[in-house]
């Protein structure tokens, strides 16, 4: 045996479990949240800032608590649009990205259009998409899909091209089929890139859904923001903003969790001390 050659220890599962393990990662944002809210609250009270200008955190919470069910129902609508659009857009983007990775002709022909379309502001394209897809939830999903298409197309292409050339030779010598190369080598190599794309899409999908609701809707967080603004019910508007931010955070955390489970081998997953 040649255990002396081993650099690290043998693979043993982490001894530490449960919340204690995550405490070093959890306490800084918790403390920061407490400090920021306290300072914010104190400033608004001390300088007597009018609530329509900057409402205090307690005012925002009051606005939410006045009708928590309605706000949550609207949030649910937005979340639904965001998730469905994120899934469809990411999937279609990944599909085109795969095409780009395998055909340089396709990439050369279509990539300029993809990049150009990517720079179109969502506020400009949303009215057109709503015109096409109608006033219901479908048009909001379509706007979100549009936004979520590009990050995955670009990252999928890059990811599928990022494989190790020597490993490709290993697969060649082993007489692997193109499908085996894809599923056993190129796709796993692309996973870190795919997660980068999905994480971008988490934010994009919520922005896309809210902007689409802004243009035209009778429900959703974008609709709430629009109507509260017209009525100058600013604390309620801030509450809607807080919820959308919270949704984005939870969504992002979920994706990060899945990432940790799917690619624990990747260097980006190593915890730094």
């Amino acid at each position: 045996m040649s255990t002396s050659l081993a650099e690290g220890s043998t693979p043993v599962a982490d001894a530490e479990h449960g919340w204690i393990r995550y405490w070093p990662m959890l306490w800084p944002p918790i403390i920061a949240t407490i400090i920021i809210t306290t300072v914010w609250e104190s400033i608004t009270v001390y300088f007597d800032i009018p609530p329509y200008f900057i409402p205090s955190p307690s005012r925002i919470f009051e606005a939410f608590w006045a009708a928590p069910g309605t706000l949550l129902w609207h949030s649910g609508i937005t979340l639904l649009e965001a998730i469905i659009g994120c899934i469809i857009g990411s999937f279609l983007g990944a599909l085109l990205g795969t095409g780009f990775a395998y055909s340089s002709l396709l990439a050369r022909g279509l990539l300029p259009f993809v990049i150009a379309a990517n720079t179109i502001p969502v506020v400009a394209i949303a009215p057109i998409i709503i015109l096409w897809f109608g006033h219901g939830i479908e048009s909001k999903i379509a706007v979100t899909t549009f936004l979520c298409f590009f990050p995955l197309a670009l990252n999928m292409m890059k990811g599928l091209q990022s494989y190790d050339r020597v490993i490709m030779d290993v697969f060649h010598v082993a007489a692997a089929s193109p499908l085996q190369r894809f599923f056993k080598m190129r796709l796993p190599s692309a996973l870190p890139y795919i997660f980068v794309g999905i994480k971008i899409n988490v934010s994009f999908s919520i922005i896309g859904a809210i902007v689409a609701e802004f243009v035209q809707a009778d429900r959703g967080l974008g609709f709430v923001i629009m109507t509260t603004y017209r009525n100058l019910n600013m604390p309620r508007l801030w509450a809607a903003l807080a919820i959308s931010a919270l949704i984005g955070m939870v969504f992002f955390a979920l994706v990060s969790l899945v990432e940790r489970m799917v690619i624990p081998w990747h260097s980006s997953m190593r915890t730094e001390s």
Binding site: S2, A6, E7, G8, T10, P11, W265
Partner: peptide
Amino acid sequence: GFEAARPRQLSGGM
């Protein structure tokens, strides 16, 4: 003894 180990956990020689 290293069947379940990941490549990253091994030395270059291993």
